[in-house]
Design a protein around this nucleic acid. Structure first.
Lengths: 199, 199
DNA sequence: CTGGAAAACGAACGGTCGTTCTATTTTTTT
DNA sequence: AAAAAAATAGAACGACCGTTCGTTTTCCAG
C-alpha cells in the first residue's frame, strides 16, 4: 500500500501499474496481483487509503476547533498544508479529477463520492459559521466552497506545474480576503434563539 | 489534427495514441506516424494547435476592448466561455497540468511556456487596469491571476468531475465579487501623469 | 515435527503501444 | 505520358500491460 500510494501520487492513479508496484517491492507481478485481485481493485484500495489519511490529517483534527470560523479556518488551513506537503508527491484527488472526469466506472464513482463528502463537510462548517454569527447571514456556502476549491486547485497547479513558490502564501491571503468579505459585522455575541436542529 | 485534438481533449495528451488517431481517420498507424515523425511530435503539434486556437478565441478578441477593466473582463469572460464550451471535450491545459507536472521533457516545457505567456497577458491587463485607475493602486496583479486561475480550475473540476452545473455562474459571481474588492473608489477620470512606459 | 493453508513465484498468453522496414498507391511535376 | 515525390499501407519487432495457471516456498497451528 505504501509503495502504491507513492506511485499513484507521482504518476496518477492511471499510471499506477502492478508491475511498477512489484518492482518497487522487489516482488513478482503475480505476487502483487494476488493481493488485490485486479488492477482496478488496487486502484480503489489506494483511493480508500488516501481518503482515510485525508480524513485523519485534515478533517478530524479540525473538529477540535470550536464551531464557526475557527473550525472552518482549521479545515482550510490543513487542506492547504496537505496540498503543500504533497508538492512532491501530488494529490490523488486532483490528478484523479483530470484522469476520470471522462471515464465512468467504479473508480470515478469512488473518487466523486469522496470529494463530495469533503465538500459537504465544508458546507456544514460554513453553515455553522453563519449560525453562530461569524459569517453574514446571506453567505452562500456553496459559492464559498467553490472558491476555496479553486484556491486549492490553483496552489496545486501553480506549484507543481508552474513552479511558483509563493502559491501557498497566495492561497492563505485569498482566504483572509474572502472571509473579510463574508465576515459578519462585529457585534456583541448575541445568543441566537437556541435552535438545536441541524447540528 | 482535428481528430487528434478531439482525442486529446477526451483522453488527455497522454491518452492520445497514434493507433486511436489512425482508427478515427480510417488510416493505418504507419500512415499517421509518417506525418508527425513520432508520438511526442504529435503531442507537441496538438499542443501548439490548441494554443493557436486559444489565442484566436480568447486573447485576440479581447484586445478590441479598451484598456483596463473592460479588457480584463473580456479576457476572463472568454476564458470561462471556453472552459464551459469544453465541458464535453476537456481543456488540454488543465488535463496536461496533471499529466506533466511530474514529467519533465519537451511537452511539459511547451505546456508551461504557453500557460506562462497567458498568465503574463493577464498580469499585463491588470497592470493597465491599475494604471488607468480602474483598480486600486495597491492591487497585486499576481495575486489576482492566482485567484482567477483558481476560478477556472474550479469550473473545470466541478463541472467535469462533480457534474455541478452552476459552476460557470459561480465563476462569474466570484469575479464580480473579487473586482468589487479591488475596484478603485469612484473618482472623476483623473488623467494620470502620462507615463507611457510599460505599455 | 508435520501437515495444510497462505503467500509468492515464474512462465506464458493475448493485447496495445511506438517504431521500423519494405512495398504499393496516389499525387504532383516535368 | 513518364518520372519524381509524397502519402499510405502492411507486416513485424520489442516492450509493457493485466491476467491466468501450475508450482514452489513460507508460515503457522496442531
Amino acid at each position: 500500500m505504501e509503495a502504491a500510494l507513492e506511485l499513484a501520487g507521482r504518476d496518477g492513479l492511471e499510471g499506477l501499474t502492478i508491475g511498477l508496484v512489484a518492482d518497487r517491492m522487489r516482488m513478482s507481478k503475480s505476487g502483487v496481483f494476488a493481493h488485490f485481485g485486479s488492477r482496478e481493485d488496487l486502484q480503489i484500495a489506494v483511493l480508500k487509503e488516501y481518503e482515510k489519511r485525508f480524513v485523519e490529517d485534515v478533517l478530524l483534527p479540525s473538529l477540535n476547533e470550536g464551531r464557526g470560523l475557527p473550525r472552518l479556518e482549521a479545515m482550510y488551513g490543513r487542506w492547504i498544508d496537505r496540498i503543500s506537503v504533497e508538492i512532491s508527491s501530488g494529490c490523488i484527488y486532483v490528478s484523479g479529477a483530470a484522469e476520470y472526469d471522462d471515464r465512468p466506472g467504479p473508480i470515478r464513482d469512488e473518487l466523486v463520492g469522496m470529494i463530495r463528502s469533503w465538500q459537504a463537510e465544508l458546507v456544514r462548517a460554513i453553515k455553522q459559521a453563519i449560525e453562530v454569527g461569524h459569517l453574514r447571514a446571506d453567505t452562500d456556502p456553496a459559492q464559498l466552497v467553490f472558491v476555496l476549491q479553486g484556491f486549492v486547485l490553483s496552489v496545486h497547479f501553480n506549484t507543481r506545474l508552474m513552479h511558483n513558490k509563493d502559491s501557498v502564501t497566495r492561497a492563505r491571503a485569498g482566504f483572509s480576503q474572502l472571509i473579510g468579505v463574508y465576515r459578519a459585522p462585529a457585534q456583541s455575541p448575541i445568543r441566537l434563539a437556541p435552535r438545536n436542529r441541524n447540528l
